[in-house]
Design a protein around this nucleic acid. Structure first.
Lengths: 371, 371
DNA sequence: TGTATAATTACAAACGTTTGCAACCGTAGG
DNA sequence: CCTACGGTTGCAAACGTTTGTAATTATACA
């Protein structure tokens, strides 16, 4: 068949049929009916042009003739072609993916952070992959290792409560993979950071209790290896000393997990002692644990004990009495973190190391009302 | 220099220095000090072997001499080489990544599902990427589109409350990308499914209320386009008719979001009517909304109204009275979904279309105790 | 010393893209 | 009729791997 003889002469033919060039119409059709996702090559074959032409046509490159461009785009649409993500990444050495490492998923604050990150990322053509460390150091290390093989263009991390060693993050710096910390940061590593002004928040909360007439104020906080908890405590101390109020060692309780059950257990004897008339907790759940104890001990809330929590969890407004708390602008934090990260990815030469500080606001509810 | 003359003759030299083969020691050193992540090629160059040898050595292939293997592995470790994720994916056409699409992140049930999925996935060498649709149909479509370009080897999905059209999932079937539904499934599409026995759960909850002496039992449920809600309602009806009890149209309330605020608003007039002595809610938050109304209306809980919720959220045990509820074995559901998905990925020829049903258990707390 | 065989190692193609450069084809100008 | 030049298109290399096959080297045996 003259057709095949002529056809076989063209180099493009060999290119498009690399292994066993079809020798008959039947072969040819069989080859073209292959399964699997449609590639640029399939389109090229169908239209008898080269892959480069197809690639350019899809990019609307004016170098290729208008009618070719149209034909290619039509066929691509008809066969609903999608560029192969992995191939693109390999070629460009960019995954257009941002990694997030957070300690917990079921957390209203982190959820808002993620939403902020997603919004900024999607708006800039990035995808997001989330790893939850479940507050475990080992899992955090595993997650960072899984993300370091060129799988993400950059990483945003909030370290877990267990984390005291930061080697796994240093590797990102060594490989110059952009890294941004948010909320629970690690100050040993040079990287942009987005944090809440926890010192000021602790100060505001305590000052509010003082203004409401409390004079013996306790603090129930989270793990002290986290900077945020040291800051909240420092704010608490500042407010007290400013008002010439004293505290006692027994009135300062450090919890490991910060959840309800731990708060209940660790604050029980303090509440039962009835020495205090105000309590600032670094977590809404800790606050609720303490309030449960107070109710059990026969205290009236808020008459006998004023309480302020932290994070503005929705449970706080449902509890009785509803819980006063400090807001955490999670959405803004996520937005800012994503913005910093993407800026660093786009400009690898200039390294940002600033720390951005967001303000917390007091939300007054029944648990700290005196009227 | 004789050294370079000999060196240049070897083909491997040209292979390893493709562009401008170094002509002097200085050139050579400069080339080898390139930045960026270390690749198999760098190791090959340093040890003067071919990339294939390095590749095989790293895989501990006995074809390569033991000492070479050791040398390669030592150098790889020293330079802390990591295989390039994208390159591996492209070569093998596998991403070793599973996609998850869920409607909400801040949800204790989904969190457990994710944990189950992650555990099974990690154990089998898979990573996981989570997309939250935030209960939005548009976001869900976007997310599926973002995952379809060969970015994941398979997908697990729980459809959003808004979703009534399933075209975006059909594309996975068309491209034969393995797909598993869990919890909120779509029965139009042939795919393995893992669900809770919502019918039985609704039946159990209602039957429990009946056994506790209720005779006028209301149902407050979620969006009726979701099968799970239709099933819970059906279970409720079965238990009633079995006990020869009647219900009224007014006693059956359908909510769109299923959150606290909606539950409070939509159940207010029903509660105020004081017609009912029992209430089964398809969500703990709906239950709490209803209880809040009951308290406001001066009803005593549980004396005047028994309530059973659904999902066993932690808030339920903190609320006063603590809330009876139906358990949702999220972890098991996640495990099963991941197992089915990975099985389908590994055996593309055999298609599974079974539906796996998990049982829910009644958790009795104060809100439904009569003693 | 030569040859057959075993043990190593190198080569090349492939995965799906993009892109600098080369090649081709008409047409217009000399 | 040749040359030059736009307008199109094709070629080949590259991204970092793996793997079947070919090539080289070392070993053993005659």
């Amino acid at each position: 068949m003259a057709f095949w003889r002529i056809f076989h002469k063209r180099r493009i033919f060999k290119k498009l049929y690399p292994k066993n060039p079809p020798q008959s119409i039947v072969d040819y059709l069989a080859f073209n009916m292959k399964k699997g996702p449609v590639t640029i090559k399939d389109i090229a074959r169908e239209l008898n042009v080269s892959v480069s032409t197809v690639s350019r046509a899809l990019a609307d490159n004016p170098l290729v003739k208008l009618e070719t461009r149209i034909a290619v785009k039509e066929l691509a649409k008809k066969q609903n072609y999608r560029p192969h993500f992995t191939a693109l990444s390999l070629r460009s050495n960019k995954t257009k993916t941002l990694g997030i490492i957070i300690p917990q998923l079921v957390h209203e604050f982190f959820s808002m952070v993620i939403r902020g990150i997603e919004d900024h990322a999607y708006a800039n053509g990035y995808n997001v992959i989330i790893s939850s460390s479940h507050e475990s150091y080992d899992r955090e290390v595993l997650d960072t290792k899984a993300l370091i093989n060129g799988r993400v263009d950059g990483l945003m991390a909030c370290i877990s409560k267990e984390t005291k060693d930061y080697e796994h993050f240093k590797e990102f710096v060594d490989r110059s993979i952009p890294l941004v910390f948010f909320d629970c940061i690690c100050d040993e590593i040079e990287a942009p950071k987005v944090v809440l002004d926890d010192f000021d928040a602790g100060y505001q909360a305590t000052k509010h209790l003082i203004q409401q007439g409390c004079s013996s104020i306790a603090y129930v906080g989270g793990p002290i290896n986290l900077l945020i908890n040291r800051d909240r405590l420092a704010g608490y101390n500042k407010a007290l000393s400013e008002a010439n109020l004293n505290t006692k060692d027994d009135w300062i309780i450090h919890c490991d997990s910060g959840d309800y059950e731990e708060g209940r257990q660790k604050s029980e004897s303090l509440i039962n002692s009835k020495e205090i008339d105000g309590l600032f907790a670094a977590t809404d759940m800790l606050a609720i644990g303490a309030m449960k104890n107070a109710k059990k001990a026969g205290l009236k809330l808020p008459e006998d004990l004023l309480v302020v929590g932290f994070s503005n969890w929705s449970i706080g407004s449902l509890y009785e009495p509803s819980l006063s708390t400090m807001s955490q602008p999670g959405y803004e934090m996520g937005l800012k973190a994503a913005e910093l990260l993407i800026r660093q990815i786009d400009n690898p030469e200039q390294t940002i190391t600033e720390t951005f500080v967001l303000k917390s606001e007091l939300i007054v509810r029944e648990s700290s009302m005196t009227d």
